[in-house]
Design a protein around this nucleic acid. Structure first.
Length: 502
RNA sequence: GCCCUCAUCGUCUAGGGGUCUAGGAUACCAGGUUUUCAUCCUGGCGACAGGGGUUCGAAUCCCCUUGAGGGUACCA
């Protein structure tokens, strides 16, 4: 452990697709641990896969990190003393190291074609052997090679078997045998370094002190350790995080439209970044106390890489939903309004038609009044897990009450006592409005008063009223609802209920 | 096939030989509050994968089995 040196961590995504929660969780742990230790976080773009890497995906990475509030100290867009931070811009650096290995006899050119290798593996399989590169080009004399044919560079694994030990902050020492690895490719025929090579050169030259990454990298680590040694670089500490699994207990990946795995999908569905941040931090890690809801600052304060657990975790949407609802209820209303607008718009709730127009609840642009909308959202946020659920939750503010169970509702509305309640409410509420006194407090007073006068209480009072106003058996607080509906619309809906035929 | 990792309520997890009749959270169920539903509060349901050791004593240490995941590419 390099305790006196500056801690330098890195997050090296590959811009070959949209960033998903597994990736971002790795970024998050790096970020938390870097901040906790007062170290640096370096963003490096691993774009050596020229076939699949694009600048669009790279942009998405920046955007998502930013959205979750993870700042980096060095990276492609901000520079730093260890750049460039895109692997495609570091080709000369790899070339230099590659030549060194070649010169020192630690790597060699391999001229085998794809077909030849496939054939070799096929034969090995047939013979009941484990498919592996047999080193046929290892001792080729330079003269045997023609310069113009394609070749790759392979790294020479030790000739005499040895134990390779990986020091892992989470798993302790993990040991491998060099026998289980063949001479692997470190430079592709297009001149690009392979991942296992580039990652070592970059981590070494960028002076990364701790490599925190997914467990899927653990098996490749011994190869990297050998490269560190061959190049004479110090080997960093590793920490391999447990993988995140989907509901089927398989590695999380895109399977269907319903199942969100990309970070962008969570944003679009209306999950709050602070909720996702909190939730993700708890996937594979837990604090010493049993607190679960934590701010960014508390997370940094409490995070400890050695407390990360070893087993893979299933991504539990239910718990995320619970946590998001928690943050939704605490979020600033103005912010929530902005975040809700796209969802409301999509549901055509911003068109300002119907009773909203009649009741004069529209602004100059013909859209529902913003302050009114905020109240509606304030009410709706209680019962939703994420903002995409908001339209369905507040639909009753924008459309005619439609009875979920018309027959049962009609029956309720025929009840003489209920009818008396409705009539009295209409009279009293109209009176309130006439005195420009239609407030939550007064409405509540009217409710209490009518209850006393009619002797109708409890469920008998509220349930039919809820059905009349909303058409549903459950929903927001009725006093508040009647207030937001306005006297005119409230009375109209009561009238509608009274007129409904059995 | 071979190599590596992992294994506690459905799910996320605490636990590091005795304080474990295994704790918390979520989900689910019930009761209470709100003279309504929801919220909220309280309670309940529910787990140490199996088998061997070691030990006075094992969820905890060791071995085997089983299961799960990952790696084994001119992907990263």
């Amino acid at each position: 452990m390099q305790q006196d040196k500056e801690m330098r961590l890195r997050f090296p995504p590959s811009p070959t697709g949209k960033i998903h929660v597994g990736n971002i969780r790795t970024a998050l742990f790096n970020w938390l641990w870097a901040r906790k230790q007062g170290g640096k976080l370096i963003l490096r773009i691993e774009d050596t896969d020229t076939e699949r890497s694009t600048r669009e995906f790279e942009e998405i990475i920046f955007k998502e990190l930013n959205w979750l509030g993870m700042d980096v100290d060095e990276g492609p867009n901000m520079g730093g003393d260890y750049g460039p931070y895109r692997q495609s811009e570091r080709l000369e650096i790899y070339q230099e190291q590659l030549e060194r290995l070649l010169r020192e006899g630690k790597a060699y050119r391999c001229y085998c074609s794809k077909e030849e290798l496939d054939e070799m593996r096929r034969q090995q399989k047939e013979a009941g052997e484990i498919p592996h590169y047999d080193g046929r080009c290892r001792d080729l004399a330079p003269a045997d090679a023609s310069e113009d044919t394609d070749y790759v560079l392979r790294f020479k694994m030790p000739e005499t078997p040895e134990e390779i030990v990986v020091r892992d902050l989470i798993r302790g020492e993990v040991s491998f045998s060099s026998e289980d690895f063949d001479d692997f490719v470190i430079q592709k025929s297009d001149g690009m370094p392979t991942y296992n090579f580039a990652v070592v050169v970059d981590d070494a030259l960028m002076e990364i002190s701790q490599v925190i990454r997914g467990e899927d990298h653990l098996s490749n680590t011994p190869k990297q350790v050998k490269i560190y040694q061959a190049l004479g670089f110090p080997v960093p500490d590793f920490a391999h995080l447990p993988l995140i699994l989907d509901e089927e207990r398989a590695k999380l990946k895109k399977r269907s439209d319903e199942q969100a795995v990309y970070l962008g999908e969570f944003r679009e569905q209306g999950y709050l970044p602070e909720a996702l941040f909190n939730f993700l931090a708890l996937l594979g890690w837990s604090p010493e106390d049993e607190q679960e809801v934590m701010s960014r600052e508390e997370l940094v304060e409490k995070f400890d890489i050695s407390r990360v657990n070893k087993s893979a975790a299933v991504f539990d949407r239910e718990k995320l939903n619970w946590m998001n609802n928690l943050y939704l209820k605490e979020a600033d209303l103005d912010r929530l309004l902005e975040l809700s607008l796209p969802h409301l718009k999509k549901a055509c709730f911003l068109e300002g038609t119907g009773w909203l127009k009649e009741a004069g609840r529209l602004n100059d642009r013909g859209e529902p009044d913003r302050d009114w909308l905020k109240e509606v959202i304030d009410l709706g946020r209680e019962g939703i897990s994420y903002l995409a659920e908001l339209p369905a939750e507040v639909e009753l503010f924008f459309s005619e009450p439609e009875q979920e169970d018309p027959a049962a509702a009609a029956e309720d509305f025929q009840d003489p006592e209920v009818r008396e309640v409705f009539h009295k409410l209409q009279v009293e509420l109209t009176e309130l409005a006439a005195q420009a006194d239609y407030s939550e407090e007064k409405i509540n007073q009217v409710f209490q008063q009518v209850r006393q006068e009619t002797g109708v209480g409890g469920r008998k009072f509220y349930h039919p009223l809820r059905l009349a106003l909303t058409g549903r058996g459950s929903g927001p607080d009725l006093v508040k609802f009647a207030w937001l509906l306005g006297q005119q619309e409230t009375c109209r809906r009561l009238e509608l209920a009274l007129k409904q035929k059995a």
